[in-house]
Each structure stands twice: as C-alpha cells, then as structure tokens.
Simulated assay, not measured.
Amino acid sequence: MSGPDTDLGTRSDTSRAVAFSDAIFAIIITLLVLDLGIPDVPPGRLLSGLLSQWPSYVAYLASYSYVAVVWLNHKAAFNRIRQVDRGLHWMNLLVLFSTALLPFPTIVVSHALQEHNNADQRVAIAFYALIGAFLCATWLAFYHYLARHPDLLKEQVKGGFFHGERFRALAGVVLYLLAGVIGYLVAPLIGLVIFPFLPVFYALTSAGLYQLRVTRRITHHPSPPS
C-alpha cells in the first residue's frame, strides 16, 4: 500500500471527480428515455399502441430507478472521501463505465418483451443480469481499493464498514447472476421479477449497512432525555 506522501502529485480533492460523475449520470438518464417513442399505428389506434409499449415503460422505470440508486450510493461514498488518487479515479471510471451500459440491456429487454419470443426473452434477461452483476462487481473493486487506501478518507470508518460495503456489492453479483440463470433456464418473467428488488436494497442501504443498523438501533432504543 502506498503511503499518503508518496503520490501527492497524483492526488486531488473530490470536486472534479464528483462533477464529472454527475455529468455522466445525467447523460445516462437522458439516454434511457430515447427508447420511448411514438408507436407506429394507424389513425385511431394510438391508445392501444401506447398501451402495447408497456415493457418500454417498465424497463425505463426500472433502469431510471437503478441509476438514481447508483447516484445515491456514489454520493454517499464520496461524502466519506477526502482525496482522490490515480487508482481511485480509475475505480470511479470503472463504476461509471458499468453504469453507462445500463441503457443497452434495458432496450434489449424492452424489445424482447414486446416481440413475445421466449428464446429472445431468455437471452435478454440473462444479458441484463450480466450487466447488473458487472456493475456490482465494479463497486466491489471500488470499495476494495478504498479499504487498501484508508488515508484517502476524511476520517476513520468503523471496523465493519468496508466488510459491509463489499458484502453489499458481492450480494448484488450473486443475486443478479442467480436471476439471469433462473430467467434463462426456467422462465424469463421470474428472473425479471427479481431485478427490482436489488435497487430497493441498495436504496435502503445507500448510507451503508452499518448506518442502517445504527438507525434501527436508535429507532428501537432511543436515548433517554437529558
């Protein structure tokens, strides 16, 4: 592990990394809406055409929510970071790279569901699951790097912090792969149902598993008034 004084020339504050990341998240969310188009239907069939595009709406909502949750987790992570070195920049770029892939499998799943081809739906669900697992794996790498470079943080974190964050990321990798296997081998819709639960989990724990346990402890056992 490099010491805090060995790479001062490559270190900076977090402002540029956060600003660049926010711009990328904004572009990703904008790209998601491009799959929502006017249905190609004859006059008088607009309503049925709009309703038949329901997979596009569901896919957009799911991926928009996921990008929003990634942004929340990204914000929570950088609130703890004091400085960024070259390695952490690369880890951050890897997270952004995997997040930027989300519009592609979203469109693939949406089109497969509208075409009603079971074989294509199985492949589309498995493909989305692979991208989701890759995204979680990049977060695993991000927190593994931070664990090895604690001097980049603003203050010392609790002993179980990095263990909890890496567990969150690893759980996502496993569950996405499980959803992909089930969607491909058993039924596409079963795999599809699993996907929305993962963003909910990451949204509830965006401040970290440790913070969630502390919040629950305070809620159930409030301190007596002084």
Results as ranks from 00 to 15, higher is better:
2 S>W: 05
5 D>F: 10
6 T>E: 15
9 G>H: 09
9 G>V: 05
10 T>Q: 14
11 R>N: 08
11 R>G: 06
12 S>Y: 09
13 D>R: 08
15 S>I: 11
16 R>W: 00
17 A>Q: 08
18 V>T: 14
19 A>I: 11
21 S>R: 02
22 D>S: 00
29 I>V: 14
29 I>L: 12
30 T>N: 06
33 V>G: 02
35 D>W: 07
35 D>L: 08
37 G>P: 01
38 I>E: 10
39 P>K: 12
41 V>M: 04
44 G>L: 09
45 R>M: 11
46 L>A: 11
49 G>Y: 01
50 L>V: 09
50 L>D: 01
52 S>D: 15
52 S>P: 06
55 P>E: 06
56 S>A: 15
56 S>C: 06
58 V>G: 02
62 A>P: 02
67 V>R: 04
68 A>K: 04
68 A>R: 00
69 V>F: 03
71 W>N: 05
71 W>G: 01
73 N>D: 10
75 K>H: 15
76 A>I: 04
78 F>Y: 09
81 I>F: 00
84 V>H: 01
84 V>Q: 04
89 H>R: 14
91 M>Y: 01
92 N>A: 05
101 L>M: 15
102 L>P: 08
102 L>V: 13
108 V>Y: 09
108 V>C: 02
110 S>E: 15
111 H>F: 11
112 A>E: 04
114 Q>R: 07
116 H>K: 08
116 H>T: 04
117 N>L: 03
118 N>V: 12
119 A>E: 14
120 D>G: 00
121 Q>F: 04
122 R>A: 00
122 R>F: 03
124 A>F: 03
126 A>I: 04
128 Y>D: 07
131 I>R: 06
133 A>S: 15
133 A>D: 04
135 L>N: 14
135 L>V: 00
137 A>N: 13
137 A>I: 05
137 A>Y: 14
139 W>R: 10
141 A>L: 13
144 H>R: 15
147 A>P: 00
150 P>L: 08
150 P>D: 00
151 D>S: 15
151 D>W: 13
154 K>T: 10
154 K>Q: 11
156 Q>H: 11
156 Q>D: 15
156 Q>C: 13
158 K>H: 13
163 H>Q: 12
165 E>I: 04
167 F>R: 11
170 L>H: 02
175 L>K: 01
177 L>P: 01
181 V>D: 01
182 I>F: 07
188 P>V: 06
190 I>M: 12
191 G>V: 07
192 L>D: 05
193 V>D: 06
194 I>W: 10
197 F>Y: 13
204 L>A: 14
206 S>Y: 12
207 A>R: 13
207 A>Q: 12
207 A>I: 00
209 L>D: 06
209 L>S: 05
210 Y>S: 11
214 V>Y: 01
215 T>P: 03
215 T>W: 12
218 I>C: 11
219 T>N: 13
221 H>I: 05
222 P>M: 11
222 P>N: 02
